[in-house]
């Protein structure tokens, strides 16, 4: 780059300095704080907080909610991307906006809507009560709220990716006699697998880390309806800081693993190839 289209060395260094200082303060320090607070009283206190029964129950529930919500949103995302990227129909851009809608809704409202539907005083409350089904303040509510907040992740990665790839390869496979399923499994899926993995990573991170929406529908019953983020809150509000940060550090580790995996995908295949939007 010639000197006329870049900045002087001093300005360059200054801007890099400002950006790095801001990122250190804003991102690195909070991350560091989680681990240093968790290990404040050594390894033993850390370990004790994590193998305690309520913490283990919270870990199990978090894994369960993600294990239902993520596959659900994979199936939805692939279906939506197939319909939107492979066919022309009116109202398509409205449909894309509606799929993205959960990202514009406050997590608290995401929880509220299910309370209004399935809570004791909700629309279906009396009917559910009669049939002895509990959704709100129980595991199904947590799963529903998790599905809602992670709803757009897979679809929004796949739609632009599949639109860019076009229909040629699928049409070739079909005209050579492959069935629809064969075409999907042998042509489409191998083409979109890294973008799909990228979407799944982000979806999973949010599913395991969701707080606001899950908090509203959970009822906070220790050992029963507490996910990891909710368990962190309870411990924190009880001034049990070591334990709160210990459980939080597990979630921070998940975030770091997610970031590393996501970056590897971006470096290997290029950001545009995996991050469709």
């Amino acid at each position: 780059m010639s000197s006329s289209t870049t900045e002087s060395r001093l300005v360059r260094r200054l801007l890099i300095g400002i950006a790095l200082a801001f990122l250190s303060f804003n991102l690195l320090l909070p991350l560091f704080a989680v681990f240093s607070e968790a290990l404040r009283e050594g390894w033993q206190g850390y370990q004790a907080a994590i193998i305690e029964p309520d913490a283990l129950a919270a870990i199990r529930l978090t894994l369960l909610a993600a294990a239902i919500a993520v596959p659900f949103n994979i199936v939805f995302g692939v279906c939506a991307a197939w319909a939107i990227a492979r066919f022309e129909f009116p109202g398509k851009s409205l449909l894309i906006t509606l799929i993205d809608l959960p990202f514009s809704v406050s997590p608290v409202i995401a929880g509220l809507i299910y309370v209004l539907l399935f809570g004791a005083h909700g629309w279906f409350g009396p009917w559910l009560d009669e049939h002895d089904i509990q959704i709100v303040f129980a595991v199904p509510g947590i799963v529903l709220a998790t599905i809602f907040v992670t709803f757009p992740f897979v679809a929004r990665e796949l739609i632009p990716l599949m639109q860019e790839q076009g229909n040629d390869e699928e049409e070739a496979a079909l005209s050579l006699g492959a069935s629809g399923w064969q075409t999907f499994w042998r042509v489409t899926l191998p083409n979109i697998r890294w973008g799909l993995l990228y979407g799944v990573l982000l979806c999973n991170a949010r599913a395991m880390g969701e707080f606001g929406a899950v908090s509203v529908v959970s009822g906070h019953i220790r050992g029963l309806t507490n996910t990891m983020p909710l368990h962190v809150e309870i411990l924190y509000n009880e001034y049990n800081f070591i334990a709160a940060f210990a459980v939080a550090s597990l979630l921070a580790l998940l975030a770091l693993v997610t970031l590393v995996a996501k970056s590897l995908l971006e470096w290997r295949f290029g950001r545009k190839a995996v991050a469709g939007h």
Partner: peptide, 8 residues
């Protein structure tokens, strides 16, 4: 901030 749970 996209990956770290908000409560953390």
């Amino acid at each position: 901030p996209f990956a770290l749970p908000t409560a953390v």
